[in-house]
């Protein structure tokens, strides 16, 4: 109950920023909330299903690139058309990559998702037609104006949270819980677990695509680094920092990480070392993340 109040207050406060009209905060918090969508959707795999995927940034990038392509080549920007197209594209790619990767289990799965991510990274990085290492500008954006984009992002975060928490309470979520606890037994109870994992992978991929779409809308720019494995690693860090196996943890973890990144950059040129130290410290001393510090919570 208390947790719900905190979440409501956080959501309301973030929503209120839209009216401030401050360029910096709209951009900064908008980006942070996109991080929340990424972290919550990755947690569906990592924390709720036990799948450590490094392909999350790939689906983010694919949707963003598709938006840039639609906008630049076909002058297609209307969100009613482009949003479903980009999200469906990310989901389709997640279906193919997931189908292949889920043939492998355990560490193999991690390595295979990593390899596919890097394959896409090099594909975009090495081909001038796709913008090369400089990336692409999105000529016309689906949502013009920072405040409007911010409101769209805020709405998306809230909807993603509601969607995921609903899903996790539904029969489907129960099966994921079973897979996390004991996949072999879940299978012997009659669940084709690989199919359930694939569906989770596709849903998470689609939501990452949504995040990518919003990011390209907010920044008007995509580059291959957003698609690379380091980005995936950073999303994983967010999930762990916030607390895997909860939805609010990673969502708030993304906001926290954005602040650390922002102020860390001011304090030292080597803020990556700061992040590195943070990651190592969290893994070693706080394996359940910040949510683990909240007493009496297990699941969102």
């Amino acid at each position: 109950m208390k947790r719900r109040l905190i979440l409501l207050a956080a959501a309301a406060a973030l929503g209120a920023v839209a009216f401030s009209g401050d360029r910096f905060w709209l951009q900064f918090l908008g980006k942070a909330m996109i991080g929340s969508i990424l972290a919550m959707s990755l947690d569906l795999l990592v924390g709720f299903t036990g799948l450590v995927s490094l392909a999350h940034s790939a689906f983010f990038g694919l949707a963003a690139y598709l938006l840039a392509g639609l906008s630049n080549r076909f002058d297609l920007v209307n969100p009613i058309v482009t949003l479903p197209l980009c999200v469906a594209f990310a989901a389709g790619c997640a279906l193919i990559i997931g189908w292949l990767s889920l043939r492998a289990t355990g560490v193999y799965f991690i390595m295979v998702t990593l390899a596919f991510t890097q394959m896409l990274f090099y594909l975009f990085n090495d081909s001038p037609a796709l913008g090369g290492s400089d990336g692409l500008f999105v000529k016309a954006r689906p949502i013009e104006g920072r405040a409007a984009a911010y409101v769209a992002i805020w709405t998306a975060v809230v909807l993603v949270y509601l969607l995921l928490s609903r899903m996790l309470r539904a029969p489907y979520g129960r099966v994921l819980e079973g897979i996390l606890g004991n996949e072999q037994r879940t299978r012997s109870l009659g669940y084709p677990t690989r199919r359930y994992k694939l569906v989770a992978f596709v849903i998470a991929g689609a939501l990452a695509g949504l995040a990518g779409y919003l990011d390209a809308t907010l920044h008007g720019f995509v580059n291959p680094a957003q698609l690379g494995w380091r980005q995936s690693g950073l999303i994983l860090v967010t999930v762990l920092l916030g607390g895997k196996g909860t939805l609010y943890g990673p969502a708030l973890g993304a906001l926290l990480l954005a602040f650390i990144e922002h102020y860390g950059e001011r304090v030292t040129a080597h803020w990556n070392a700061l992040i590195a130290a943070l990651v190592i410290a969290v893994v070693l001393f706080l394996p359940r993340g910040l949510a683990g510090l909240v007493p009496g919570t297990r699941r969102a």
């Binding site: 609903r166 899903m167 309470r169 539904a170 029969p171 489907y172 979520g173 129960r174 099966v175 819980e177 079973g178 879940t186 109870l189 009659g190 669940y191 359930y196 569906v199």
Partner: peptide
């Protein structure tokens, strides 16, 4: 519950609370 739920025609159900 998880065991019993496996006899539903499909557990690919996302919106209705279990």
């Amino acid at each position: 519950w998880l065991a019993a739920q496996s006899r539903l025609p499909s557990s690919m159900s996302f919106f209705r609370s279990a």
